[in-house]
């Protein structure tokens, strides 16, 4: 069955960038970032299982400024993917497709992600976590 010459739908660069399409790309991007970030969770757990010296080294790396910077963006990507994922679940249920609803639920997802990120870092830094 020849499939090479079938017409293709217009590709991404044909469309005008929009708030909703931008958020959609960010969702996918955040999913990939979360996969990479989860390696840090594995690293932390393995170092905790490996003994005090390995754990202190992991804490020093993750608690350094570059470490905290990476963790901050990991947490932001994690919460964005989580909040926007809830938006996707509503779409899967057939709700929220109206243009203004989709626009505003996107704003809510971004606000939720930023809010959760700020709160979790306030919790981490005030309880002495930091990592």
């Amino acid at each position: 069955m020849p499939t090479d010459n079938r017409p293709l739908s217009p590709h991404l660069q044909i469309y005008r960038p929009q708030w909703t399409s931008g958020l959609s790309i960010c969702h996918r991007l955040a999913g990939v970032v979360n996969t990479i970030g989860s390696l840090l969770v594995i690293y932390w757990l393995v170092s905790l299982a490996s003994g005090p010296a390995a754990f202190e080294r992991a804490q020093a790396i993750l608690g350094s400024w570059p470490g905290l910077f990476v963790l901050f963006f990991f947490s932001l990507a994690l919460f964005y993917h989580l909040c926007n994922g809830v938006r996707h679940l509503f779409w899967d249920a057939g709700k929220g497709f109206e243009l203004d609803t989709a626009w505003r639920s996107g704003q809510a997802a971004v606000a939720g992600a930023v809010g959760l990120t700020v709160i979790v870092w306030i919790v981490a830094l005030t309880t002495g976590g930091g990592g």
Partner: peptide, 16 residues
């Protein structure tokens, strides 16, 4: 994820 993010924020800094 919600549970883990907040739990590790609370528990990670207390030492080995």
């Amino acid at each position: 994820v919600l549970w883990f993010a907040f739990s590790i924020a609370i528990n990670a800094g207390g030492g080995y």
